[in-house]
Amino acid sequence: MSLAELICPAGTPAALRTAVDAGADAVYCGFQDATNARNFPGLNFTPDELAEAVAYAHARGTKLLLALNTYPPAGKVDLWRQAADTGARLGVDSFIVADMGVADYIARTYPGIRLHLSVQAAASSPEAIRYYCENFGVKRVVLPRILTIPEIRQIRREIPCEIETFIFGNHGLMVEGRCSLTNYLTGQSTNMDGVCSPASDVEYVRDADGSMSSQLAGFTIDRFGPEEKTGYPTICKGRYAAPHRPEGYYAFEEPISLNLSRLLPDLIEAGVHAFKIEGRQRSKSYVRGVVRAFRAAVDDIKAGREANIADLIALTEGQKQTQGAFETKKWR
């Protein structure tokens, strides 16, 4: 059986302590700059905070993974190298990387620190994963959320490293690390700046008929009737009109959460080593609830007991859930 480690989000020092206390096997976090893919205002760590976080986590047997998973634009590579230097000095357990230049630097400079391949690298075949393993000594790949369980099982047989999969949280629809939608509308890049549909560009506008438009940089991403709940204007979760769909429809995906709690036993059996919970932008209480529930479920499964799935389902109560690609390729 696999280790079934629980990898939990830590957007702030407080969330990190909460995740550690709630039973995370590892927490992942980033610095307050473009070097990670959740470069949101009010999130992430200063070097001093990270030093304290490493001490807190390690004192409780929890690993700390540092996300350096964006793509430095030419001329700014030093920022990523300095972040790696700082992380190494502070004793992080792994770096989560996507850019080949960043991976190469860390592999050469800090060969003793584990490299994890971020979902932002979009390695979705055994060959792509092996490329990173053989060239940079990658020890674990975070798989894109686009594969079915039989496909994961097959990949597992053909690669020399561990597998981490997302099990819960925001359900990204585009291949990560290959999406410039936000930059097209706002001028801030997901790959280079770590920004996705940024709050600074969001506006909610009440229309004359009582409906509400949620806008990003002046573009109407969705429109909600007076009775509808207004949603955040994430570009890939908006409603648009197409020639065959003049009424407007979710062209890419509905605003929906990924919840693979029912599939946990199958994922363990398929050889997944680590389960990742998305949500560095989430609150402390959210992190506490989700981590506790998954901790209990994973422990139950490992002990051969039936997991209490109801608690996990309740976490997203009132919200639509999906098992996405993991359950069936009809999702595609």
């Binding site: 793509y71 430095p72 634009p73 030419a74 700014k76 590579v77 080949m100 790959n191 280079m192």
Partner: peptide, 8 residues
């Protein structure tokens, strides 16, 4: 994603 001199 060849964004920078190190990767190139």
């Amino acid at each position: 994603n060849a964004y920078n001199e190190a990767t190139i």
